[in-house]
Design a protein around this nucleic acid. Structure first.
Lengths: 239, 239
DNA sequence: GTCTATAGCCAGATAGAC
DNA sequence: GTCTATCTGGCTATAGAC
């Protein structure tokens, strides 16, 4: 009997995966707002009502796709972080950023789902916040490790008090021991990273930037230096 | 007869404006992908087929909205530029950026239309590129004026050759005389600015950044300094 | 879990009268 | 320019048989 249940559960997860896969495929053609259960069912050779056994509504399917996207992106970012353990902070930062960019370019529609315009009429449930934080946490980890290793240059200028307070509270909430001014800069760099990725994925760089990989790598390395991460190599950044 | 034609044309532009206005209102509820001519007509007390006298298709209406949005945002950015003529470059840069942010926060759905995910199945026609460039040109103007006034600090590090080539070609195309390394940094800062605005408008800063205005102002001032713009005031940024 | 059938909607676009 | 009417398609979601 447990063997039967095992088989049933296996079948269920397989169909669930197939539905999500087809739905992801359709994101490309239609966009998140027009994601249609019927169309997914049609393509899968099922009838639309059968899908409701797997996802109680269209929004639930959308939520599953969003969580999957955040998790896939987060996993790649974390892999880049782990793969560069021991390297200098700027290289690690750049590696994480490049992983984000690579995933975004490889999955533009899923990327749009999580970092593009919010889907109208769809409110993200609480379940998405955990996966959504993974990239940010990977970036923070770079700075945290650098701080622990003493390769983090402290910034001379203090941010405004309100910004400092936000950074302090964020640091406490995440239990990360970093100077609040650094954490503040990190949050800004996090948003700016996605500005670069957005513009490339969404086509704003057309006829403006052609050497996109080099451009991006350079830009995020500058971001890293702005935070206070330091790189060894041919001469310090401030002679 | 010319009076009649004048009246007719006036009526036509008035109806056209009413259609666009209602369409903008609906962007908020439905999103760009779901913008519906029928719904617009219904709300205006017209019948759907009547709209086709004003916009030959749904996509044409969308194009008009996109151009209007780029123009409205661009006009605000240019106004900020003009209002700060003579001020120091960092203040001017910050003013233009703040104008962008203010417009985006005031018109989130129109903002999403132009800087969010591309509308699926919609290809932006060539007409949008001119208006789309206005914000970027305003930012460039800040640096150009600073360069002319000698308040632009040249960067010490050269970008990679390919990035330099892009910057050079962009500078020629826009006929702007700025050191290519600066222009390269400017393009990156342009994208990064919209990363900050995106995260705020699209809700990514929820539970992360509360003092948003101070945070933003600080971040874009840092961007300006990264480009080489200098501000007078209490101590230089590099003592 | 899957099926048929159905309810109750919505859309873009066109034809032709007035 | 606006109307009615129509074509041709789409959709979410549920009920109830098997």
């Amino acid at each position: 009997m447990s063997a039967i249940r095992g088989a049933r559960e296996r079948a269920r997860t397989e169909v669930t995966a197939a539905i999500k896969e087809e739905a992801r495929r359709q994101l490309a053609d239609r966009g998140a707002g027009e994601l249609s259960l019927r169309a997914v069912a049609r393509e899968l050779g099922m009838v639309s009502s059968a899908l409701y056994r797997y996802f109680p509504s269209r929004d639930d399917l959308l939520t599953a796709l969003i969580i999957d996207a955040y998790d896939a992106l987060g996993a790649d970012a974390e892999a880049a972080l782990a793969a560069t353990e021991g390297s200098d902070p700027v290289s690690r930062w750049t590696a994480v950023c490049r992983a984000v960019r690579a995933w975004a370019l490889g999955h533009p529609h899923e990327y749009a789902l999580i970092y593009g315009s919010p889907v109208p009429g769809y409110a993200a449930p609480q379940d998405t916040t955990g996966p959504a934080a993974r990239v940010g946490l990977a970036l923070i980890a770079v700075a945290r490790d650098a701080h622990a290793a003493g390769t983090l240059r402290e910034t001379s200028e203090e941010p405004p008090a309100a910004v400092l307070a936000d950074a302090r509270s964020l640091g406490e909430r995440l239990d990360v021991r970093l100077p609040p001014p650094v954490l503040g800069k990190l949050v800004a760099a996090w948003a700016q990273l996605f500005g670069l990725v957005n513009f490339e994925v969404f086509g704003q760089f057309q006829r403006v930037v052609e050497a996109r990989e080099e451009f991006f790598t350079r830009a995020v390395a500058d971001l890293a230096r702005g935070i206070g991460l330091t790189a060894p190599g041919p001469g310090p950044s401030r002679p």
